[in-house]
Computed example of a mutant assay.
Amino acid sequence: MLAFLLGAVLLLALVRMTHQIARAPHDRPLRAVTYCIVCASLSFPMGLRSVADNVDGMVGAGTAKLIQNILLLGTVYWLMCFYLQSASDPRTGRRRARIELIPLAITAVVITAATLATPRSERGHVYATANMQVASIAVFYLAAGTYLAYALAMALRWTLRYIQVSRGSLVVGLRLVAVSLACMVGADALRGVLVVVRAFDGTVPAAVITGVKLLLDLAIPLFVVGVIYPGAASRMASLRLRWRHQRTHRRLTPLWVALNQAFPENALHRAPSDGWRSRLTPQGLHHRYYRRVIECRDGLVRLSPYLAQLKEAGPVEHLPPGVIADHLNRALKAYTAGAQAPSGVVAIALPQGDDLDDDVCQLVLLSDALRASRPAD
């Protein structure tokens, strides 16, 4: 079950990062994260028994395990590169990334040599059942585990630094990453200790080995979730804003229709539109939303001289929307009939604050009251 969960999370992250890198191909930190996810995604199938058996059958025993571990080394290397590219200028970041290639290459060579030095009958091992008294097997796990712990510890240190200067959804994502990295560092360190104990013919309870594996199995998808969380949270916020604008646009329809019929020249026909594409994209929806708000407010400004009778009902800001809607209907009829506008103006649906949301809120209340006053429409 955990394997399928990890695979699904990695696939989702890979799709997300591929989309982002296509939009910003020259963003080095983003490329590093993308390569990190690619390496993790490629290593995942190598851990599946069916895939490993096929690869080992075609190339040789132990090949799938070697490839999986080299890809894991690449995963943490690119994770370090993300921080190196983010925390320094491009030239320094590239230089430090090249330096970090040295321990990566050494570790890859060591585990490859260890695999080749391992008898074929022992190459099909997994960590829980491997014979650590075979020197090459112990070297394999110690070398790979040491590099993983080093790279993950460096990434954890930088992650904790970034948490202090980040805000919003990015902080949540970084905290998830920090927790997962801490778990992985602890698990790798413990696995190294257990390798040494088993190499000297020590006994390790099976429950301890299973617990360490479970910790890693949970930490890896948690790390991927932390990486994609800020982008996913931003997308969710965008969807909520789109839904709110769509709902508000619909609720403004009664007011907009009434004012547009009276003042058709207020329509913003000069605004560019891509037809059906504009209707399907978020930008098109937001454009129609702001256009409707502006046209409603412009219509009320032009109609304001015909609302003089509202002064007789008391302070306009204290009148309920239903009363204002009744007067608005009368004012529209008077304007349509060509009646002379009284002197002075009366502003209605004035916002209580200074931002656009307050203005829209008053327009929506008036539009709702107008709909209620025209049940037959």
Score class of each variant (00 low, 15 high):
Ala187His: 02
Ala108Asn: 08
Ala182Val: 04
Val177Thr: 14
Arg251Trp: 01
Asp355Glu: 11
Gly57Leu: 09
Arg31Glu: 08
Gly173Phe: 02
Leu30Ser: 13
Gly124Arg: 05
Ser86Thr: 13
Met46Lys: 08
Thr129Leu: 04
Val346Asn: 11
Asn266Asp: 14
Val225Ser: 12
Asp89Trp: 00
Tyr127Ser: 11
Gly145Glu: 06
Ala24His: 15
Tyr127Gly: 10
Leu328Tyr: 01
Ala233Tyr: 04
Ile70Leu: 12
Trp158Leu: 11
Asn260His: 11
Val179Ser: 14
Leu176Glu: 11
Gly322Phe: 00
Gly47Ala: 04
Phe200Met: 06
Ala349Arg: 03
Leu12Asp: 08
Glu312Gly: 08
Ile348Ala: 07
His269Leu: 04
Glu312Tyr: 01
Pro315Ser: 12
Ala189Ser: 14
Leu104Ala: 13
Pro375Ile: 06
Gly93His: 08
Val293Met: 02
Pro90Thr: 10
Cys296Thr: 01
Cys39Trp: 02
Asp355Arg: 09
Ala135Gly: 04
Met17Leu: 14
Ala8Tyr: 03
Phe200Trp: 03
Ala117Met: 07
Leu215Glu: 08
Leu72Thr: 14
Ala105Tyr: 01
Val225Thr: 12
Met236Ser: 13
Phe263Met: 05
Ile21His: 11
Leu148Glu: 06
Ala24Met: 12
Cys81Arg: 14
Asn69Thr: 11
Arg291Phe: 00
Arg96Thr: 10
Ile220Gln: 12
Leu332Cys: 07
Ile228Thr: 14
Tyr229Ala: 15
Asn69Phe: 07
Val316Ala: 05
Ala40Glu: 03
Ser88Ile: 00
Ser166Gly: 04
Tyr141Ala: 06
Asp359Ala: 09
Arg49Asp: 10
Ser86Glu: 07
Asp201Ile: 00
Asp326Met: 02
Ala151Glu: 04
Gly211Ile: 04
Ile294Gln: 06
Pro103Gln: 07
Gln85Arg: 12
Ile163Ser: 04
Leu222Phe: 06
Arg251Asp: 13
Ala341Arg: 10
Ala347Asp: 06
Tyr141His: 14
Tyr83Lys: 02
Val301Pro: 01
Arg31His: 10
Ile102Asn: 05
Thr118Met: 02
Ile37Gln: 09
Leu365Phe: 03
Leu142Gln: 09
Ala207Thr: 14
Leu190Ile: 02
Ser180Lys: 07
Val257Met: 09
Ala331Phe: 00
Gly57His: 10
Val257Cys: 07
His327Ile: 00
Leu66Ser: 05
Asp358Trp: 00
Met80Asp: 11
Leu104Arg: 06
Ala313Leu: 13
Arg161Asp: 10
Arg302Cys: 05
Cys296Arg: 01
Trp243Ser: 15
Leu332Asp: 08
Arg302Trp: 04
Pro320His: 03
Ala135Pro: 07
Leu356Phe: 00
Leu156Asp: 10
Leu194Trp: 04
Thr115Lys: 03
Val197Tyr: 01
Val177Cys: 14
Ala337Thr: 01
Arg175Asp: 03
Pro45Leu: 03
Gly192Ile: 09
Ala339Leu: 05
Val323Glu: 13
Leu350Glu: 15
Leu319Arg: 07
Ala105Lys: 02
Ala376Val: 08
Ile99Tyr: 12
Thr92Met: 09
Gly62His: 02
Ala128Pro: 02
Ala187Ile: 08
Met236Tyr: 11
Ala339Pro: 05
Cys183Gly: 15
Ser169Cys: 02
Ile137Pro: 10
Pro90Ser: 12
Asn69Gly: 05
Leu365Lys: 15
Pro305Ala: 10
Asp357Tyr: 00
Leu48Pro: 06
Leu48Gly: 12
Val177Glu: 13
Ser121Cys: 01
Asp357Ile: 00
